[in-house]
Amino acid sequence: MSGIPGDTVLPALPGLPALYRRAVTLAAQRAMGRGAAPSGLPAARHRVDGIRTDLAALTRFQQLLGSAARDQLPSAYLHTLAFPVAMSVLTRPDFPLPLLGMVHLSNEVHQDRQVSAFEPLDVVAYAENLRPHAAGTQLDVVTEVGAGDERVWTGRSVYLARGVRLDPAAPAERREDRPPFAAPAPTGVWKLDGGIGRRYAAVSGDWNPIHLSGPTAKALGRKAAIAHGMYLAARMVDQAVAAPSGALDWRIDFAAPVLLPGVVTTSFSRTPGGGGRIDAVGWSAKRRRPHFTGWVRAD
């Protein structure tokens, strides 16, 4: 995958713990009135070339998700691999929104072909589409994964900075009335114990404190530890299509977070006339609230 002149090339994948520390420092500085938040997104694209897959880490990831430990990378694993590069964009001093507390709204992925664990990969990440949302401001974080000269995987994650207004003078967007949730016929259940956040953090490197334990989550204003969105996404994609062989498209929209420990009732169904598309829903049977909706389509 060829770069664009002006790409900020990082020497290696940045470590996520250091990025989280930088986010905390930035938040503190802004709270103290120093380094006021800019109003636009940085044009920067961050890039890391020649990433090699750690086979032991890959195996741990695959086994935690219950997917077969193939020599082929799970689609969600490519997101995990690219995530530190995206995080390095979001923790730039000129990035306008506070990273901590940002809510992950959705992910949409187009994968052109399956990717082998032995291909060196290039990752580019950038942010775009800063726009108002009923509850604050949202933006897209785009990550692209390339192998050789081709782009093989593109992901677009939508994040929301709750309560942050681009133009404080503008009237707040009207919140759309959501239709009441009608649960489909269940086909399965995910029983998530209190340690799943820590175990997924260990295989994904995403040690965001809101996923690790009750106390660390409460410190950041959550009621309890919540499951990683990408954990839910990875399980959804794997369960929908067990053995992808070609292109793969998927999308997940997150609703109420999954509090840990917790039970997610799931429904997987082939979309009628959907050309092999599988629809997925995860919800809380007890609270009758959706946790996520999504779909996966394999060619």
């Binding site: 219950g66 016929a185 269940p186 086909t187 399965g188 259940v189 995910w190 029983k191 369960q239 799931t266």
Partner: peptide
């Protein structure tokens, strides 16, 4: 429990029974 769905056999049958 069915490894792929997490539901016990009884819970699976309950879905079919309802259907």
């Amino acid at each position: 429990g069915e490894p792929r769905t997490g539901l016990s056999m009884g819970e699976h049958q309950a879905l079919t029974t309802a259907a």
